[in-house]
């Protein structure tokens, strides 16, 4: 095999993108819209994939796409300020430069879900990686069976993407439930753990694809509830989170048993991770 004439793309070198918009969603949570300086250099992203975002001089973190996949020129990322890099990202003002590598990873099984009922279970910030899938589900509504969205978060103040949730909830062709762990009396919505909503929803478990994203404990309980409802392990997909440094399988950090979360995931059918999720400190 002849060596390529031109230098191959360095998977570790970021492109430069600019912040075009910054929106405060919830305490510590911000959504950034980015525009690459050279839009042609990026492959289109699929729901569930992620980018590696760099604040120059600070560092790099993996952040899922949270925007509409129809609009490929607007790269939308919803970020919680939890560390030095994510903190610095959320402080960037429009015009600021960001390093960007991606898109990486295996996303949600949008094609496999066609013709089936789709149950989306999101917890906390886990709604962000699911939002591109939800945009797609509603944009191509006729391709799917029933759509159920169950979203749980800590408190009413922490609810993300209220505008979209309200719009989807207003639809007659979807079942959308939002629940919070606790609320002041002024909140008239549901209070309780999101997994308890699963048995109350109507879908055909034999013809269902479930998309789950949230804290790992919440996902474990959601999977249990989905399987109790009769959904097969093959049809339950979850998005995993692990430390990622390279996003291309070189650095080793994101290993979860046999898989590299960055390359083989972050979205996995539960059947592939069954047995691993219950192990401590794997």
């Amino acid at each position: 095999m002849a060596a390529p004439e031109t230098a191959p793309l360095d998977p570790m070198a970021p492109l430069v993108a600019r912040v075009t918009r910054r929106h405060h969603d919830a305490p510590e949570v911000f959504t950034l819209e980015l525009e690459p300086e050279d839009p042609g250099a990026l492959a289109p992203f699929a729901p569930g994939q992620f980018n590696m975002l760099t604040v120059f001089g600070v560092g790099e973190v993996p952040i899922s796409f949270s925007g509409d996949p129809v609009d490929q020129n607007r790269l939308v990322h919803t970020i919680r300020a939890v560390g030095p890099v994510s903190g610095a990202l959320t402080e960037l003002e429009p015009g600021a430069a960001v390093g960007l590598r991606g898109p990486f990873g295996v996303g949600w099984p949008m094609a496999e879900a066609e013709g089936k009922d789709v149950v989306v279970v999101a917890g906390g910030l886990g709604l962000a990686p699911l939002r591109p899938a939800l945009y797609r589900l509603f944009a191509e509504r006729e391709r799917y069976g029933k759509i159920v969205l169950l979203y749980g978060t800590r408190s009413p103040d922490d609810i993300l993407f209220r505008r979209e949730l309200e719009a989807w909830r207003g639809r007659l062709d979807a079942e959308v439930e939002v629940t919070v762990d606790h609320a002041m009396a002024a909140w008239h919505g549901n209070v309780g753990v999101v997994t308890t909503l699963i048995p109350r929803c109507s879908f055909d478990p034999a013809q269902t694809v479930a998309l789950v994203c949230g804290p790992e404990v919440m996902m474990r309980f959601a999977i249990a509830a989905l399987m109790d409802a009769g959904v097969a392990a093959d049809d339950i997909y979850l998005s995993m989170e692990r430390n990622m440094k390279c996003a291309v399988g070189f650095c080793g950090h994101c290993q979860f048993g046999p898989v590299f979360v960055c390359r083989d995931g972050p979205v996995f059918p539960y059947a592939r991770l069954r047995g691993l999720l219950a192990l401590k400190e794997l």
Binding site: C246, F250, G252
Partner: peptide
């Protein structure tokens, strides 16, 4: 063993 970490400097 191939694992690496990254560091940014300024």
């Amino acid at each position: 063993c191939f694992c690496t970490s990254v560091e940014d400097a300024s």
